[in-house]
Write a protein that binds this DNA or RNA. Structure first.
Length: 580
RNA sequence: GCCAAUGUAGCUCAGCUGGUAGAGCAACGCUUUCGUAAAGCGUGGGUCGUCGGUUCAAAUCCGACCAUUGGCUCCA
């Protein structure tokens, strides 16, 4: 029987450990599991190694591989096992745990290498594993057992697939993703920048990037406005008291930027907007007839993320949420959820994203992580499940993925490279309104507690743009492109007509750039392609005499000649429809 | 924050074991005026991430800090 890829990867983890021990005999082994694209093994080296050493280790693996014709299983008593691994505190820790759980202890031997292992290997590594189907990819630090209180070990990652061809294809995909890296493309396309003086995780938005942000926000607002949302605005700092009341202070005070006033009062930069918005609702008494109150606010939030966590626009310290909160009664929740659902499902296809939905639930095993009692959580979760069901969607089960105040419907977008990203979210919150004492006056003239819904379409503009840049490799749809058209006159004789075309495009609010004839035509076309400008318009004698333009779409080898007015009408239509 | 790597012109990079910097592209100027992905010649541009130390002498060696990248931990 053909071995599974997991068996091959697991066997390769053993092989990696064996090779490391031969090259660095005083190394202590941690654990070495299988992962999505291969395997890794954690080591406690006596001297640090670097990526440069991987080649030698990989070569040693290939040298050992032909000598491994079997994985021999040895069942041993705990005492015997501990004796064998006496000099390795990590393995002893694992053996003690197995012993406590009264689980059998098995060792596996291949060649001269023996490891504590529960099994799951190929039968005959030398025959079952192609030496070209794996490669060591990187070295990284990793805490023993994933706990930051523990010692940091050195992890070596390997890629492994069933065939060398699959390995190559995987590497090609990685290279493709690297080419689209938003951290490189963003500054290259002049969308955003970072400054060492401003600080890490604090992106600065250029005129082009700001234009794109505003276009995205305007679109979200257009969709929301149809559903009765109103815009609100809030200050970016607040007294500590707001977060003590909301429950955020306890949980997140270390992740806040703190501000002390000259009089010694404690303030914080806002890390989210919901508590502020509750206070807009709380400004007066509401009749049940006036609900829902829907507040939308595109605004920046600040979180003191650990420096090592920061990455391009995906994880920053200042980010813009397209946030909205709906304050309503329980019996209005479903309708409000469905409205937001529709917005999300209108928004994402405009960029060619497909969506999956995840029902993010609380974890009953860890009640301390959440506000409110279990019964309320179960009710809220079943309500969200019913909504997904009504929409005919098989929601992914997200156990333990809930926010601390309520369950969520999270939307996952699949990009053009097949990677999945969490984007939009709708959250039901029965706890925060209670903590802030939010009520309405019901039909009986009595105060009644309300609930709130948190709804972000893009999530954060920064993160959404990082995903969009990589999804499109920087080539935005015409409605979103900061420069929509480059006008390329063939030579100086066409300068007059070129300025006429420029004026006509400007009059139609089309964002166009002139590429004057100081360079060769080929070079100017090339520059426009590299700058990911969706439409290139070349004009020469023919076009000038016919009042026409030769239009070449980005990436196309050919151009199409059409009357100037027809071209303008086409662009305006594409913008209006937000065509892909 | 932790483990590691990296930081030289706007960008991509070279600069071996210490003797104060170079290329290509980009920019700018002149020539070229061209029918769809790189025309030719020339010019300018660098406190070698920052601060400190060792040395007659530091881009190069040492230390601290800042920043970036890949992981780990975290993510309202």
């Amino acid at each position: 029987m053909k071995p599974t890829i997991e068996e091959a990867r697991h066997s390769l983890a053993h092989l990696l450990a064996a090779a490391v021990l031969e090259l660095y005999p005083d190394t202590k082994l941690g654990i070495g599991p299988v992962i999505e694209n291969g395997f890794y093994y954690d080591f406690d080296f006596s001297k640090p190694i670097t990526a440069d050493d991987l080649g030698a280790i990989e070569a040693r693996m290939r040298a050992i591989l032909p000598t491994w014709s079997e994985f021999r299983k040895l069942e041993v008593a705990p005492a015997e096992a501990k004796k064998r691994f006496i000099s390795n505190p990590y393995k002893v820790e694992l053996i003690n745990e197995l012993e406590a759980k009264k689980e059998g202890i098995t060792l596996y031997q291949s060649g001269t290498f023996v490891d504590l292992c529960r099994g799951g290997h190929v039968k005959n590594a030398s025959a079952d594993i192609d030496p070209k189907s794996f490669s060591l990819s990187r070295v990284a630090g990793a805490y023993w057992r994933g706990d930051e209180k523990n010692k940091m070990l050195t992890r070596i990652y390997g890629l492994a697939f069933s065939t060398p061809k699959e390995l190559e294809e995987y590497k090609t995909r990685l290279a493709e993703a690297e080419k689209r890296d938003h951290k490189v493309l963003g500054p290259q396309l002049d969308l955003f920048t970072f400054s060492e003086l401003v600080g890490s995780g604090l992106p600065l938005w250029t005129p082009r990037g700001t234009l794109v942000r505003n276009l995205l926000d305007a679109y979200v607002w257009e969709l929301r406005a149809k559903h009765g949302y109103e815009r609100v605005e809030i200050p970016h700092i607040t007294k500590k008291d707001l977060y003590v009341t909301s429950g955020h202070w306890d949980k997140y005070k270390d992740d806040l930027f703190h501000v002390k006033t000259r009089e010694g009062h404690e303030f914080a930069m806002k890390p989210m907007n919901c508590p502020h918005h509750t206070q807009i609702y709380a400004r007066r008494q509401w009749s049940y007839r006036e609900l829902p109150q829907r507040y939308a606010n595109t605004t920046m939030c600040y979180r003191d993320e650990q420096s090592g966590e920061l990455s391009g626009l995906s994880r920053v310290r200042a980010f813009t949420q397209d946030d909205a909160h709906v304050f309503c009664r329980m019996d209005q929740v479903k309708e409000e959820f469905l409205k937001i659902w529709d917005i999300i499902h209108e928004f994402y296809p405009k960029f060619g994203f497909n969506l999956n939905v995840r029902l993010s639930r609380h974890d009953p095993a860890h009640p301390e992580k959440y506000l409110g009692d279990a019964k309320r959580w179960e009710m809220a979760e079943s309500m969200l499940a019913a909504i997904a069901k009504e929409k005919g969607v098989m929601a992914i089960d997200g156990l333990g993925e809930a926010a601390f105040y309520g369950p969520k419907l999270d939307f996952l977008a699949k990009d053009s490279l097949g990677r999945e990203w969490q984007v939009a979210t709708i959250q039901l919150d029965m706890n925060m309104p209670e903590r802030f004492g939010l009520t309405c006056i019901n039909e009986d003239g009595k105060k009644e507690g309300i609930v709130m819904i948190h709804a972000a379409i893009m999530g954060s503009i920064e993160r959404f743009l990082s995903i969009l840049i990589e999804h499109t490799s920087g080539l935005f749809p015409v409605w979103l492109a900061p420069v929509q058209v480059t006008v390329v006159p063939i030579n100086d004789k066409h300068a007059d007509y070129a300025s006429k075309v420029m004026a006509a495009l400007a009059a139609a609010s089309i964002r166009a750039e002139l590429s004057p004839s100081t360079e060769t035509l080929g070079k100017r076309v090339r520059a426009a392609e590299l700058n990911k400008i969706p439409l290139i318009v070349v004009i020469g004698d023919k076009e000038a005499s016919d009042n026409a333009v030769a239009v070449r779409r980005h990436g196309s080898k050919t151009s199409e000649t059409k009357p100037l007015q027809a071209f303008i009408a086409d662009v305006k239509k594409a913008v209006e429809e937000r065509a892909l």
